[in-house]
Amino acid sequence: MLEVRDLEVAFGPVAPLSGVSFSLAKGEKLGIVGESGSGKSLTAMSVMGLLPLSGGRITGGSIVFDGQELTTLAESAYRKLRGRRLGLITQNPMTSLDPLQKIGPQVDAVAVLHLSMNASEARTRTVEILGTLRIPEPALICDRYPHQMSGGMKQRIVIAMALAADPDVLVADEPTTALDVTVQAQIIRLLDDLVKERDLALVLITHDMSVVAQTCDKVVVMYAGRAIEYGPVEAIFDAPQHPYTQALINCIPKGLSTDEHLSGISGTVPTVSNYPKGCAFHPRCDRAKNICTSERPAFITYGNNAAACHFAGDDR
């Protein structure tokens, strides 16, 4: 359904993202994890074709969706995919709805635009979708304004907008980061159910390795603008190849359900301007050797995983 190969993104001379690859079929859930600034949102925006909004540009690689190359697609054609076949959910539901408009029309707009419905057909559909998202009294909610609702409710509205035209791919960029812990679990469960019911392909971007473990089929681990490990969730949790992935997994408190995050790894993420030479992780890696400071490790398959580490696959 969706295949990303060696994606590379640049903002003028700065290239904060390169070498990201993954593929995703219908009904599959792909997790993208990584610390803040590792390029997760840039990956999401690339897939949605929305990089130009922030002045960015895809400079290499390809994104193939349903047999169609997206990186060279004309904006007018891309617009027919967005909202229709590619849905997006963003991080902060507090700011992701137009505060001046009622909820109803904001959701209706999608069906009016893509399914050529008239206003009342679209509203019927909106009410129906809100109902399936377990929003109480959906007809009344349509007449509310965003500021009259809780964060969790607003995020459901955003999900409703993304689903209104029955997309094939749903890109969820940290859909729960801004929400209360209890609501987080509800939203993740909701997304999980939606993938099953609608046979969606889900890209779930998150900081939280335990969410990936519980929800996803595949995972891309990102560090400093690159994918450093990619594979099926079981394989990666059983035998992580990259030291960074191993550190991430060790950070999940065993058997405890506290919301421990990636901050457990010592050191800080490099920023675009000072990505280290060689393997970007070497200043924080306890297995780093000389070669790590000079040569960038290639992305090579080991068993079911693929990892970018000079010593991946070695027995330790």
Partner: peptide, 26 residues
């Protein structure tokens, strides 16, 4: 630059629609 504008684009709305229905009122 507001977040919700990104989502308006993600809905597939045209720049013109976004400008007239959402940006101008703000």
């Amino acid at each position: 630059r507001e977040d919700f504008v990104t989502l308006l684009h993600a809905k597939g709305l045209s720049m013109r629609t976004i400008l007239v229905r959402h940006l101008m009122p703000h």
